[in-house]
Nucleic acid binder design. Structure first.
Lengths: 169, 169
DNA sequence: TTTAATTTTCAGAAAATACTGAAAATACGA
DNA sequence: TCGTATTTTCAGTATTTTCTGAAAATTAAA
């Protein structure tokens, strides 16, 4: 194996291990890493061979990655099999991940909070009022953080982050 | 069960279910939720009874929550058992979670990237240079996001977020 | 000390999650 | 249309994660 191939392989493997921490499964993280460092689109069979995973596993995770928008199908002339390539623009990757996290993490949390806030708003005891206050504070915060993420992730340009850093110092 | 108790119970249960999405286990999320809405500190036994979990499970997750800084032990005069209470300040909770995520998610990612960047920096082929470029772009971004989070989460005051929101509009 | 209350640990059980492999479905060229 | 290549699905299996319960360790009162 060439030095280059070894480095890539190492990257794919380690990225896969990190995936668990990120709440996405190992195979999904590895496929994403593999396509990120592949100079050309790959077929399901190539991915299966490279990562030693089954067809079912590869197929499922390719569709998931595509549904996130982190990879896309491309047509290769004269070939019948589907080929996949990764979105390589760092800023776009960030926006996709940010939106997905918002959708899967903060929005459901806010939903739960709102529901409890609503149900407690007419209760009169001191303890109920305290609960209402605590949950409202939490939810206001979650929603604020949410709207910041939404705005950041909707920008076309990545020049935004350096500006924010500047505001902070 | 009183209306208030029902609302709390609902909150604890749903928050526990959300925990999975957040990459923390159900019991840990439930204990945190329970202490968040409890007007007074609770003992391990009270938590076990309230959530129907074993002593081992309760103990392990209480220690984990304490090591994050999301809850703390408090002494109740005349009582021998440990009592626990949650940090209720929303901004502090946010800072803790942000730091923990940085530590567990972005820092290891950056480590992997740096390692591969280093190993590829002296290779001369076009493909190797492309790889080096791609990984560097990713890492620069991760580190930038990291330093923003670090700065945000190190502020004492929560008045920062509204300011950021203003900059964005 | 001794004894009893409390906390911690950890082996094994249970539950949740991920993966395989092959059958079914679909797409496409002849 | 038919036959073949390709993709998708999913029941069963393997792996990982979480939880239990009881024994071991610790703490503190008597």
């Amino acid at each position: 194996m060439s030095e280059l191939a070894e480095i890539k392989d190492n990257f794919v493997t380690q990225w896969g291990a990190l995936g668990s921490q990120w709440g996405i499964n190992r195979t999904m993280a590895m496929i994403h890493a593999l396509l990120l460092v592949s100079p050309n689109p790959l077929t399901t069979d190539e991915i299966m061979a490279e990562l030693s995973v089954s067809r079912g596993n590869a197929n499922t995770n390719l569709r998931d990655l595509a549904s996130w928008g982190l990879i896309r199908q491309v047509i290769v002339k004269g070939e019948r099999k589907d080929h996949y390539e990764a979105e390589k623009d760092t800023w776009k990757i960030f926006c996709i991940v940010a939106r997905e996290r918002k959708r899967r993490e903060t929005e459901p949390a806010s939903q739960v909070l709102k529901d409890c806030i609503n149900r407690s708003k007419d209760l009169k005891t001191a303890e109920a009022k305290e609960l209402h206050k605590q949950l409202t504070a939490l939810n206001d915060f979650v929603m604020l953080a949410n709207s910041i993420m939404e705005k950041v992730a909707s920008k076309e340009q990545s020049t935004l982050l350096p500006k924010i850093l500047k505001v902070l110092s």
